[in-house]
């Protein structure tokens, strides 16, 4: 069975994102309670439920159009800092994909890089600051390496990105936060996983689920 990353995949991906945020809502709230203001789970769940509602109103024509709609919705509905950060990520990915009807391995790696660059531009965080950038940067690198390999297929690129993001999220545990609300805690932020890195990994894992 050949995996095709078309608009149907994109819609399924966003639907699975909404499911994942609903399922992990309490977990994200608990993570954010430890080092933030405990609204991340609530905000992400609300944001992606709004994305689901939008998908119910109209079916986008391309993956890029689906991601652009998602960007707009997240920025309007999430409320906290995650709104403009994820919104910018989806918007930049949408721009990178353009009007293409299907996404090939190189295009997916490029879209992830554009998304990460958008998050960095908006939030000014660097790798090691204990933010979602610590999930995205290894994901971008892994996707690029997988896409550049011989006979790369889209599924292996999706999987590489998701696994790297999950490892990156786990690797935020010992870090001391230097950006965002958690940075107010200084050294006390160590020993907790960054909620933004966790939600980022959930999003990239959902991209695999949609292709399976």
């Amino acid at each position: 069975m050949t995996v095709v990353l078309d608009v149907n995949w994109a819609v399924k991906w966003l639907t699975l994102c909404a499911q994942a945020m609903a399922e992990h809502r309490v977990e994200l709230i608990e993570l954010d309670r430890a080092i933030g203001d405990s609204d991340h789970g609530e905000n992400m769940d609300r944001g992606f439920q709004a994305v689901l509602a939008k998908l119910g109103e109209a079916t986008p024509e391309t993956p890029g159009a689906a991601l652009k709609m998602t960007a707009m919705t997240l920025m309007s509905k999430v409320g906290g800092a995650a709104g403009p950060l994820y919104g910018t990520a989806f918007l930049r990915a949408a721009t990178a994909l353009g009007d293409a009807g299907e996404i090939d391995p190189g295009a997916w790696a490029g879209a992830l890089a554009a998304a990460r660059d958008g998050i960095v531009a908006r939030g000014k965080a660097e790798p090691g600051d204990k933010t979602m950038v610590d999930a995205w940067t290894p994901a971008v690198d892994a996707a690029r390496a997988a896409a550049d390999g011989d006979g790369a297929d889209v599924l292996s690129v999706l999987v590489a990105a998701a696994e790297a993001a999950e490892a990156g999220a786990v690797a935020t545990d010992p870090l001391i936060a230097r950006k965002g609300r958690a940075s107010y805690l200084g050294e006390r932020s160590a020993g907790h996983r960054d909620p933004g890195a966790v939600s980022s990994a959930l999003i990239l894992r959902a991209a695999v689920g949609a292709a399976a």
């Binding site: 905000n43 707009m72 920025m75 309007s76 509905k77 999430v78 409320g79 906290g80 709104g83 403009p84 919104g87």
Partner: peptide, 13 residues
Amino acid sequence: GTDDGRIGTSLEK
């Protein structure tokens, strides 16, 4: 504020 009157910011607004 947000679209539904909570604390936050809204791109649409």
